[in-house]
Amino acid sequence: MSILLHGALILVLCPLVVGLLGRTKALWTGRRGPPLLQLVFDLHRLLRKRAVFSDVTTFVFRLSPYLVLASALTAVAVVPVLGVRAPAAFPLDFVWFAYVAGLGRMALMLGALDTGSSFEGMGASREATFGALLEPALFAVMGAMCLKTGVSSFGSALLLEARGGGGIVWGASIVALFIGVQVESARMPVDDPTTHLELTMVHEVMILDHSGPELAALQAAAALKLTVALGLVATLLNPLVGRAPTSVVVSANVAMTGLLAVFLGTVESLVARLKLRVVPQYIVVAFAAASAALLATTLRGSAP
C-alpha cells in the first residue's frame, strides 16, 4: 500500500477515533456529546490563535511541540495500522519506532521542564517513570511475536494470527499492548485526561503552558499516537488479516479500530483512575503478560 494512501487514511481516521471516544464517554454519562469531528474544529480554532510563552522558557519550549508531532508522524509509517504491511516496514522497525517515539517523549518532557513549573515537572517525572516501565514490556511482546512468526518486525503482527491465532502468545500480546495503549495515550485507568486537578494528571499537565498552534501540534500528536496504537491492536484482533483482499482487510481494520475506541471509552467511563502509586503495578501487569507471551513461544508446536 502506498505511503500516501496509508498516511491519508490514518489522518482521516484520527479525528474519528478521538470523536468516537468522546461520544462514547458522553453517552455513558447521559449527554449527547461533541460532534465526531470535534478534534478538527479544535485544531482549527487553536491554529488561528497566537501563542503565549513563559518568560522562563527557551528555544526548547518553542520547538518541542513540533518535535513531538514530527516523531509521531514519522513513527506512523512503520506500524501496520490498517491490517496490511506498513509502507516503510523494515527489519526491526519496532526498535526504530520505540526510539523515535522516545525522542518525542523526551521533547515533551523537556518542554514541560522548561517552564520551571512544579506541576509540569511532576507530569514529566511520571511520564518518564511510566515510560521506563513500559518499554521492556513492549520489547518482550515484540520479541514473542518475532519468535513465534520468524519475522522480526512489526509485520509479525500480521502473521501472528495465521500462525497461532487464539493461542497464549496472541492473547497475552493483546493484553500487554492494550495496557500499553492506555499508558502511552494517557487514558484511564492510568491518567484521567478530563480531570480538573493538575496534581493528578500525567499528560495534560505537561502541556499546561502550551497554547495556540503549539497546543494544536501536541493535540494532533496525541490523537495520532492513540490512533496508531489502537490500529495495531486492531490488526492483531482482525480475523481477516492475510485472508481477504486488501480493501476488505483495510475496511475491517478501520471498523475494528473504531470499535476499540468505543471499548476504550467504555472502560474509561466505568473504571476509576488508579492511585498514582498503583499505576506502576498496573504497568507490571503488561510486563507479566508480555513475559507470558514470551514463555509461551516455547510451547510445543509453536516453532515457526
Binding site: 501563542a51 510563552f53 513563559s54 514519522t74
Partner: peptide, 26 residues
C-alpha cells in the same frame, strides 16, 4: 527521513513562535 521531518518541524516551530506573547509561567 526522520531527520528531515524533525528539521522541518523545528523550522515550523521557530517560525510559528516568532510572534508569541511573553508572560509568566501558569
Amino acid at each position: 527521513t526522520f531527520s528531515l521531518v524533525v528539521l522541518l518541524g523545528g523550522a515550523i516551530g521557530w517560525w510559528s513562535g516568532r510572534h508569541a506573547r511573553r508572560h509568566v509561567t501558569w
